[in-house]
Design a protein around this nucleic acid. Sequence first.
DNA 1: GTTATATGGCAATATTCGGC
DNA 2: GCCGAATATTGCCATATAAC
Length: 302
Amino acid sequence: MRINIETAELQAFIAVARQSSFRAAAEGLFITAPALSRRIENLERALQERLFDRTTRRVSLTPAGELFLVHAQAVMEELELAVKSVEQGMAHRREHVTVACVPSVANNLLPLVLKPYARTHANVRVRIIDESAADVLESVRKGEADFGVNFIGAQEAEIDFEELTRERYLAVMPSHHPLAAQSTLHWKSLAGEKLVSVSSSSGNRSLIDNAFSRVPQRPVIQYETNHVAGAISLVAAGLGVALLPELAIRNAPYKGIVARPVTSPVLSRAMGLITLKGRVLKPAAATLAQALREAMASKPRK
DNA sequence: GTTATATGGCAATATTCGGC
DNA sequence: GCCGAATATTGCCATATAAC
């Protein structure tokens, strides 16, 4: 037997059964009495049973109607529960955004961007992959991250690189260091200094080594760390001078150190948004990317 | 774009029942 | 028994939607 009963017909049936009146039930359902009458007629035709004994003065359930009312109410209650459960399920569903970025961005820029983002996107769970430039590139390439913020990737065929800002490298030293008296430094003035450097596997290190290759007298790399934070700690302890990207120390709460621009030549790196070529960002990720664009744009481009 | 079907509203009709 | 009010039902039409 094929069941062909509409929920509107069940609602009409339940309303008439409760009100014992077609007219009152029709008013409650915001339809006219003839429309309601036809719904009941359709239902009775589908069931091949008369559900109400009615005259123009009295409406009462038949035995078949009483039996059907129990099941009709149960069906409507179950349907309401199903709708509520889907609505609540959708409301609680969380979105995920994964952003890969170098530590200087993760430590100094992301917190500033995520604070307002969290207010408007409370339902979005943000995962941050803060790794070396090479690992950030790999995370985006493998699709592990929705997008990345990195200073390498512009040359990769399968990566879209959108430059957001260009940041200089600064010489970071204790505030009592003799070079701290100068407003800008030449690369050659660093000759003979004990250098605190990030490890040779770092993208920063490649750029710095390349800059020193043009200087006749190179400084000695005395200390090597894996992370910028470690390098800054060694500088603060008076163990040497570090060359670090501007963003890495811009908001760092270190006391007793100063940063001076290095010129001749000015060494800088392009920091950009990297995505897998052709990939369309989901809305939550696109909004976060836009917030990063605006945050980067608010800094003076050097 | 056309046709078929479903739905609902308006107006008219049929029916019931209380009051006289 | 007649009348009038109340209400369910029916006929017709307009509109929306689906199928082709």
